[in-house]
Design a protein around this nucleic acid. Structure first.
Length: 406
RNA sequence: GGAGGGAUACCCAAGAGGCUAAAGGGGGCAGACUGUAAAUCUGUUAGCGACGCUUUCGAAGGUUCGAAUCCUUCUCCCUCCA
């Protein structure tokens, strides 16, 4: 199966400008394509991961990826998919985030000689002169058309600042720049980028009279139509310091039935025939599929060792065994009073609850367990002896934490 | 620049001098049921030395025994006119 058909079969492609042409280009490894990543945080998240996977797949098929770090566009801020103004980032933060992105990407994409390149649009965008830019590309953009773009429509009611309105022009300019200087003839991105990307191809056509192509990746939505990779606490990060491998594993392990196969198809490199076989799975077998998904993804991001550990830990915890890999907190002697620590304080010390009030509430509702025995009073105390061997604190059904005394 | 409207907890949204730590919904968390899923039902959802105390209704002042509610100034947002 050719790469393009595989992408379609995996459900990765959302929209394309010229299907035949794009098919030809990528199937024959003749595309030089770019995907932009704005450094809005100090770690990549699941959304970026999809784009990187696509990049990897295309690279394996002989195409040349260009990773564009949006060090310049981050100064402006993309209004797409946002209902309010982004807070402006300082140059220092942008710089820092860009570096973090770089490091994480190098794990996925082979930046070897001639294989792929990484560029930063700060290198050309920040040098632009306002009036010169207006004269160079200003006539190529119709405000009427821009306002019709989906990404702005949503903002017409809430308000859209001129700063953000210009984001599209910056992104279009990037494509134009890369087309000229790096022979980049294709742009990929999330589906929310579609209008920004189209204006890029339009700019190239008007300025250079050449064709260029754009393709968007399906947004990873769950069965309820919300973006995946987000939790109440924020994004699911790829940086192990922000989302531990175990948490990462658990995120996928706990996914809805309805979303498992879709995720396996879109995110893993498991051969399609194998995935098609899983399509029939139901009930407890489908539960197995979640484990496969969680393991595969954790392996890709954190490596085989970490994935194995996460899996073992999960098995041990959920089947009642003991395991040393669960998140742990060290209690110091100073936190003890008369050789004991109150259950409420222990909850807070281990980060299981943000406040004592919440810890109390949780205990009163019967949601806290020590070594799998329900804690039935907020006046429960844990002794130094117990802590020396380590106690397993469980909050609810799924959150485990170990506390021990050094 | 002018005329109106608005800002309430994680989000949406009621409240218009004491009965309000603030209705309702969403989301989150926990319990029951389960397959570490979904759906459903129940509880809970500011903090703390906890039948009490402290902080919280955009910000700062003021009136009052008492303010999310009344007054003054300021900040931000929206709509209409220019």
């Amino acid at each position: 199966m050719k790469i393009y058909d595989e992408l379609v079969a995996r459900g990765l492609i959302a929209q394309v400008t010229d299907e035949e042409e794009i098919k030809q280009l990528i199937n024959n490894g003749r595309a030089t394509f770019y995907i932009g990543f704005d450094p809005t945080a100090d770690s990549l998240h699941v959304g970026h991961f999809m784009a990187l996977c696509l990049m990897k797949r295309l690279q394996m098929a002989g195409n040349k990826p260009v990773v564009l770090i949006g060090g310049g566009t981050a100064y402006v801020g993309d209004p797409s998919g946002r209902s309010d103004l982004r807070s402006m980032m300082t140059p220092e933060i942008i710089e820092h985030n860009s570096n973090c992105f770089k490091k994480q990407m190098e794990k996925f994409i082979d930046f070897g000689e001639g294989k792929a390149i990484m560029v930063n649009n700060a290198d050309w965008l920040l040098k632009l002169n306002y009036v010169e830019l207006l004269r160079e590309v200003g006539t190529c953009f119709s405000v009427n058309n821009m306002l019709r773009a989906e990404c702005y429509k949503q903002r017409m009611e809430k308000g859209l600042s001129f700063l953000e309105f210009n984001y599209m022009i910056m992104q279009s300019y990037d494509f134009y720049h890369l087309f000229q200087h790096y022979g980049c003839n294709m742009q990929f991105g999330g589906d929310d980028q579609w209008s920004n990307m189209l204006f890029g191809t339009e700019l190239i056509r008007r300025k250079l009279g050449k064709d260029s192509y754009a393709m968007t990746i399906t947004l990873l939505l769950n069965s309820e139509g919300n973006k995946m990779g987000k939790t109440a606490k924020g994004a699911v990060w790829l940086d192990p310091a922000k989302t531990t491998p175990y948490e990462f594993y658990q995120y996928w392990r706990n996914i809805d039935d309805a979303d498992v196969l879709k995720c396996i198809r879109m995110l893993t490199f498991i051969p399609l025939e194998q995935i098609d076989a899983m399509d029939q799975w139901e009930g407890s077998q489908l539960n197995q599929a979640k484990e496969i998904l969680a393991y595969e993804l954790t392996k890709m991001i954190h490596g085989e060792d970490e994935a194995g550990k996460a899996k073992d830990t999960a098995h041990a915890l959920f089947t009642g065994g003991t395991d040393t890999n669960m998140p742990a907190t060290e209690i110091t002697a100073g936190q003890l009073t008369d050789g004991v620590i109150g259950m409420v304080d222990l909850m807070v010390a281990s980060g299981l609850t943000p406040s004592k009030s919440e810890a109390r509430r949780l205990i009163q509702q019967g949601g806290v367990f020590i070594d799998d025995v329900k804690v039935d009073s907020i006046d429960t105390y844990i002794t130094a002896e117990q802590l020396k061997t380590g106690v397993k604190v469980r909050k609810g059904k799924k959150t485990y934490h170990k506390a021990f005394l050094m």
